[in-house]
Computed example of a mutant assay.
Amino acid sequence: MTDRNAGGALRRDWCAPDEEIHLVVGDGLGDLAYDVAGLRWDGRDECAALPAEPPERPSAVLFGSSPECPLVAAVDPWRTAGRRGSWVLTSRRLAWVEETAAIERVEVPAELIRSRTGTTRALPGRRSAFALRVELADGSGIDFVAADDAEADRLAALAPGAA
């Protein structure tokens, strides 16, 4: 889940001098899942004729009450374009940063983050996994899903409650 090499490049090329990187996740938006009213697990409209192709074990799940939630709406153009990048949680913001030239495409300032907590994320096939939940002021947000027990421990350490 966390790419330590990406963290070094981000710290050098993208972060403010006093900004601390807490988490770097993923290398694209293709393994992102959705728990959003009106959307299927793969992010397509509920009425889409194409069969769903959800990731079996997503690295992250966006959640919210509608596709118009700020985070969901901001991510959609980059997901459908197949852009590659990483989710980055820092002391100042949550952002999705495109791989090429560290271009920030989605940013949520820390003031709009309501909380960071540990949660159990339901997954397809009656499975579940530990996740770090970053909830925004409007109640939407993103769950970073642990792939294994060691990763769950790392994510739990980032979940002190209030951000």
Rank of each mutant, 00 (worst) to 15 (best):
M1E: 07
T2S: 03
R4K: 09
G8T: 06
G8R: 11
A9L: 12
R11M: 10
R12P: 03
R12T: 08
D13E: 15
W14T: 05
A16Q: 13
D18F: 13
E19R: 05
E19A: 04
E20V: 15
I21G: 01
H22Q: 13
V24A: 04
V25E: 11
L29D: 03
D31R: 14
A33S: 15
A33G: 10
A33N: 08
A33I: 09
D35S: 13
D35A: 15
D35I: 03
A37K: 12
A37Q: 10
G38S: 09
L39A: 07
L39D: 03
R44Q: 12
R44C: 03
E46N: 11
E46G: 12
A49P: 02
P51Q: 08
A52I: 12
E53K: 10
P55V: 05
E56W: 00
P58V: 01
P58Y: 06
V61I: 15
L62E: 01
L62D: 02
G64I: 07
S65H: 09
S66T: 14
P67Q: 03
E68M: 01
C69R: 03
P70T: 09
L71V: 09
V72P: 08
A73R: 15
A73P: 07
V75W: 00
P77R: 09
R79E: 08
A81D: 10
A81Y: 06
R83C: 01
G85K: 05
V88P: 02
L89N: 04
L89C: 06
L89E: 02
T90G: 05
R93E: 10
R93K: 13
R93S: 13
W96V: 09
E98F: 02
A101M: 08
I103C: 04
V106N: 04
V108P: 02
P109H: 10
A110T: 04
E111M: 07
I113Q: 01
I113G: 02
R114F: 13
R116Y: 02
R116N: 06
G118R: 08
T119Y: 00
T120G: 01
R121Y: 01
L123N: 00
G125N: 07
G125T: 06
G125D: 03
R126V: 01
R127I: 10
A129S: 13
F130H: 02
F130G: 00
A131G: 06
R133H: 06
R133V: 14
R133M: 14
V134A: 05
E135Q: 15
L136V: 08
D138K: 04
D138N: 12
S140K: 00
S140I: 12
G141T: 07
G141P: 06
D143F: 09
F144K: 00
A146G: 02
A147L: 08
A147Y: 03
D148F: 06
D148C: 09
A150F: 01
A150R: 05
A152G: 13
A156F: 00
A156N: 00
A157V: 05
A157L: 11
P160G: 13
G161K: 00
A162T: 15
A163I: 13
